[in-house]
Write a protein that binds this DNA or RNA. Sequence first.
DNA 1: TGCCAGGCCCTCTTTAGGGCCTT
Length: 207
Amino acid sequence: MRQRVAVIDFETNGASPGGDCRATEIGVAMVEDGRVVDRFQSLMNAGVWVPPMIERLTGISNAMLKSAPPADQVMLDAARFVGDAPLAAHNASFDRKFWDYELGLLGLVRRQDFACTLMLSRRLLPQAPDHKLGTLARWASLPDTGRAHRAMADAEMAAHLMALLSDTLRQEFHLPDIDHALLCKLQKVTAAKVKPYLRELQAAMTA
DNA sequence: TGCCAGGCCCTCTTTAGGGCCTT
């Protein structure tokens, strides 16, 4: 995939944004030609409390957030970094909620679609033991990106996974031009129908 | 008072429920 795609990952203090639930860290891996060509990462202080369970999960403590830059400034910088690049994330419905919410607080509206490496993995890698990001990375021997459950490491891991998914499409279905729009289209086809859909696509291209 | 996410997939489905996945 030659086009630039921004693969993002948020760490947060809860499951759904709003009220006391906010993003605490963002990582963005800018991918081009299957390679990470640029990175953006920052902790972000939204003035919220992180429960102990999530402190243990992410390694992001309340003390770390006290000295972190303000969330609004970080999100402005992140939005500038991403620009008009299409977006991707693992379980994009989660990161999309936080991206839209945090940008909404700044009066900004997302224009790009999100590709979801979780939905694509379920469709294209059904043989994997499960579809957690960490499991897929180990199962497919993806490059080590650092501590799991930190935003930059997880964003880069999802970027490697997206490259694997693109390679799978190229090798199994001989599709030469994998772009973000195709990934978004595939994730809307149900898991049971995606392989017949791809075979039809392949036949149409070789006809 | 009691509850507290939500989008998606699969199936023993569609007038539903349980599990996955993210933090």
